[in-house]
């Protein structure tokens, strides 16, 4: 699955638009992270636990979006966007959405099949 947040995929042509696919997740921070964050709020600096939470949420929502696109038989998801909303105190929703499309490879040199794995590497 090719996942990009541009409207086009380099070297490929969109032949069919399958529609909007989406994935979301609502994650709550846990008490341990809360206490650590409380201390960090005195001295400042990066909240590594919360960054990790954000990474996990993003990965989860993208995975769910990819699963939906796979069901539609898509080759790629284009124009991916993220948005967040605060559901309740201490829990945030991360929502990923994009357009699932079918691609045709263009005749430019030797076109490789997509070397991108489904796993989106973080960090």
């Amino acid at each position: 699955m090719i996942v990009v947040n541009t409207e086009l995929v380099p070297g490929r042509e969109v032949v069919q638009i399958l529609g909007l696919v989406q994935g979301n997740t609502v994650r709550a921070k846990n008490v341990g992270r809360d206490i650590a964050a409380g201390f960090k709020n005195m001295v400042g600096g990066e909240l590594k636990g919360y960054t990790q939470l954000l990474v996990e949420s993003r990965r989860q929502s993208v995975e769910r979006m990819i699963a939906q696109a796979n069901e539609l038989g898509a080759d790629a998801i284009v124009n991916v966007r993220f948005t967040t909303s605060a559901v309740t105190n201490g829990a945030a929703e991360l929502y990923a959405y994009g357009t699932a499309v079918k691609l045709m490879s263009m005749n430019v040199g030797t076109v490789q099949s997509a070397p991108i794995s489904d796993e989106i590497v973080g960090e």
Partner: peptide
């Protein structure tokens, strides 16, 4: 054109003091 791109992300949370 030979290589399709991929989605990349970067996250960071910074606390106040």
């Amino acid at each position: 054109p030979r290589s399709p791109g991929t989605l990349v992300t970067g996250e960071c949370v910074i606390a106040t003091d």
